[in-house]
Amino acid sequence: MPAITREEVAHLALLSRLDLSEDELAHYAEQLDVILGSVARVSQAVQQLGQGQDIPPTSHALPLVNVTRPDVEQPCLDPADVLSQAPAAQDQRFRVPRILGED
């Protein structure tokens, strides 16, 4: 099925927030094509093994239920400990790069 193009890989890199180099784009286009070509067998598998039946998807081996706890105060991490690991901090907050455009 696939034959993934270099343009598609560039789009994936954008969605993935990876500033790939030109060399990387070419390299990953080649590799992803091989990998996707191989894993595409899964849709055949469903048809063959499912014998025409509707097979429900499984996202998780356990039945998931939400977990709650009583709404009572509990100790949390010390802000100084947390901010000591931040790339940049200021006034007990994380300092981040500009989030709005120039204009």
């Binding site: 099925m1 894993v39 899964v42 598998a45 469903v46 093994l49 429900p56 998807p57 499984t58 081996a61």
Partner: peptide
């Protein structure tokens, strides 16, 4: 559907 969806169906078959 073709990729992630089918893979999740295979997961059901494995179980």
């Amino acid at each position: 559907d073709a990729y992630y969806g089918s893979a999740q169906q295979v997961r059901t078959l494995i179980m």
